[in-house]
Simulated assay, not measured.
Amino acid sequence: MKMHSQRGLTLLGVLVTGVLAAFVLVVGFRTVPVVNEYFAIKRILGVLADEADKGASLIELRRGFDRRGQIDDIHSVSGTDLNIDKSGPRTVVEVEYTRKVPLLANVSLSIDLNPSSASR
Score class of each variant (00 low, 15 high):
L20F: 13
K54Y: 10
E94F: 05
F29R: 10
R99C: 08
F39E: 06
V27K: 11
V14R: 00
A118G: 15
I44T: 11
L104P: 06
S116G: 07
L25I: 06
H75T: 13
H4N: 15
G88V: 10
P89C: 04
Y38I: 14
F29V: 15
G46N: 05
E60D: 06
V19C: 02
R63I: 08
P115A: 13
S5K: 13
T98S: 10
K54M: 04
R99G: 15
S108V: 09
S108G: 13
S76F: 01
E60T: 12
A40V: 15
V24Y: 05
V34Q: 08
V24C: 03
G69C: 08
K54P: 14
G64C: 03
P33F: 00
S78A: 15
H75M: 11
L45E: 07
G55T: 10
I44Q: 04
L61H: 12
V16N: 07
V14P: 14
A22N: 01
G28P: 03
R120M: 09
T98F: 10
V93E: 01
L61M: 04
L25K: 09
V16T: 15
G69H: 03
D50Q: 12
E96W: 00
A105L: 08
E37C: 09
S110E: 10
Q70I: 01
D81F: 07
S5W: 04
F29S: 12
A52T: 01
G8Q: 12
I59K: 01
N83R: 04
D81G: 00
I74L: 00
V92L: 06
L61Q: 11
S116R: 09
M3A: 12
R7C: 06
L25D: 05
G8E: 11
S5G: 04
V107G: 03
M1N: 14
D81Y: 14
D85F: 14
